[in-house]
Computed example of a mutant assay.
Amino acid sequence: MRFSTLIKYPADWMTGANADNSVVLTSRIRLARNLRDEPFPGWATREQRAATLEELRPAVEGLAPMKDGFSQTLSDLSSVQKQVLVERHLISREHAARGDGSAAVIERRQMYSLMLNEEDHLRMQAIRPGLELREAYEGLSALDDELAQALPYAFDPKLGYLTTCPTNLGTGLRASAMLHLPGLVLSDQIGQVLQAVNKIGLAVRGIYGEGTESLGNLYQISNQSTLGESEDTIIRRLERVISQVAEHERNAREKLLEDDPDMVADKIGRAYGVLRHAWVIDSKEALNHVSLLRLGSDLGFFTNDTMRLADALLMDIQPAHLQLHSGRKLSPEERDAIRAEIIRSRLHSLPPPDIRPTTRNGDNPNTPETSGDA
Rank of each mutant, 00 (worst) to 15 (best):
G69T: 05
Q72P: 00
L74P: 03
L74G: 08
S75Q: 14
S78I: 02
S78L: 04
S79D: 15
V80W: 06
V80G: 04
Q81T: 06
K82G: 05
Q83V: 06
V84T: 03
L85M: 06
L85C: 04
H89E: 03
S92W: 10
R93G: 14
E94V: 07
H95D: 01
H95F: 00
A96H: 06
A96C: 08
A97H: 13
A97R: 15
R98P: 02
R98L: 15
G99C: 04
D100R: 11
G101H: 11
G101W: 10
A103T: 04
A103H: 02
A104T: 06
A104L: 02
A104W: 00
V105N: 00
V105P: 02
I106W: 01
I106D: 10
I106Y: 06
E107T: 08
E107D: 15
R108H: 13
R108Y: 09
R109T: 15
R109E: 15
Q110C: 10
M111W: 13
Y112V: 05
S113E: 04
S113T: 02
L114C: 10
L114E: 12
L114K: 00
M115I: 09
L116F: 07
N117L: 05
E118H: 08
E118C: 07
D120T: 11
D120A: 09
H121N: 09
R123W: 11
Q125R: 06
Q125S: 08
A126M: 06
A126E: 01
I127T: 14
I127M: 14
R128E: 15
P129Q: 13
P129V: 11
G130Q: 14
L131E: 12
L131K: 01
L133F: 07
L133P: 05
R134D: 11
R134F: 00
A136Y: 13
Y137L: 13
Y137N: 13
E138W: 08
G139V: 12
G139K: 11
A142N: 03
L143T: 06
D144V: 09
D145L: 12
D145Q: 15
A148G: 15
Q149A: 15
